[in-house]
Amino acid sequence: MDDVFAALSHPVRRTVLDLLRERDGRTLGELEQALKPHTTLTRFGVMKHLKVLEEAHLLLTRKVGREKHHYLNPVPIRLVADRWISRYAEPHVAAMTGLKLLLETNPMRSTAPKHVYELFIKATPQALWDVLTDDTKTPLYEHFNMTSRTEWRPGGARTYYMGDRQVIACTILDMDPPHRLVLSFHAQWAPDVAADQPSRVTWEIAPIGTDACKLTLTHNDFDGETATSKAVVHGWPEGLSRLKTLVETGEPFQLAAPAA
């Protein structure tokens, strides 16, 4: 966590995160322009601060055409919060942890990812894959302790439930065990999200040495600024931090589920 606190210690880097919170997916040029009222840094100076944030995993980058887009990664901040926030305070704090907002105000579908998360897990890709593909373990890490039922094959259905109520319908679009899983994602927990077109969730697992891996989750292909794109920012940071705890320790990080 030292690198996270070090990255957050500089006001320019905190301003960068605030800018990405306001509008994620900005290019270097866009960030440079947005920072001008706050600093006299040169383009090279901005790049140095972005590098510190990227090395602390608070910022992720993705190439879209010839441009590099920058995305806020709230998972490390969520892990810090999970360490010190009490279980009594957590329900109130959770409502304020939607650190990722929308990429742009353009209502048309974008080629840039909407939400990108990255974290490092002290476990092999196979160990992480085994948890992700075990329906009995889903409620041990998912937001609201959701359960799941899955047909583990390309084209198979994966359905999430709260109690007996179906809340998310997915289809497996691609599987490459233990490195890649791609799902369509159709939220159904409320009428507004149920009216949205399905989006796409991609889990990518890359080995690091012999006993660790990097997990990158990309949730994109939203049809503009949808109710789903606004809602999922609250669930992913919690679910990913709980997943990391479960895979690394074998112990679930339990949160009380709401009434179905």
Rank of each mutant, 00 (worst) to 15 (best):
S199R: 12
D2M: 13
E67I: 04
A123N: 01
E142S: 11
L41P: 08
R62P: 11
G224S: 12
A123G: 05
V233N: 04
P237W: 11
K36C: 08
T136C: 08
S184C: 04
P76V: 06
W189T: 06
R153Q: 07
E30R: 01
Y160F: 12
L173M: 12
F253D: 02
G25T: 01
H92S: 09
L128G: 00
G239A: 07
T124R: 15
A256V: 10
N73P: 10
R153I: 00
Q254P: 05
L243C: 06
L31G: 07
S199P: 06
V93G: 03
R200A: 09
L59D: 14
Q166T: 11
E55C: 06
L31M: 09
P91M: 00
G156Q: 15
Y141P: 02
L60F: 03
V12H: 07
F144K: 15
H10D: 06
P107Y: 01
H38G: 08
Y88V: 10
A34M: 06
R26P: 09
D130S: 01
A227T: 01
D134S: 12
K244W: 12
V201M: 13
T27Y: 03
F120R: 12
S110D: 06
F253Q: 02
P198W: 10
K137Q: 08
P11K: 10
S86K: 05
G156T: 00
V233H: 07
R158H: 10
H115S: 05
V201T: 09
G163A: 03
I172T: 14
L41T: 12
A259Q: 07
T245K: 14
M108W: 14
A187T: 07
R13G: 08
G250L: 00
G98M: 03
A194N: 01
L246C: 05
A206S: 15
A259P: 12
R62M: 07
Y160V: 01
L19G: 11
H57W: 13
Q166P: 15
A195L: 01
D196G: 14
K214T: 06
S199V: 04
A169W: 08
L103E: 14
Q188C: 13
P191E: 14
K63E: 15
S184R: 08
A227P: 07
L128E: 03
G163W: 04
E225L: 12
P178M: 02
F44P: 13
G163D: 00
H115R: 06
E104D: 10
P11S: 02
T111N: 01
T133Q: 09
R14L: 13
L31H: 04
V93F: 11
E30I: 10
G29Q: 05
L58K: 14
D3S: 04
D221G: 00
A34W: 14
P37E: 03
K114C: 02
H92C: 14
R87N: 03
A56M: 13
P258E: 05
Y71R: 12
H70I: 04
D164S: 13
M162F: 09
A169G: 06
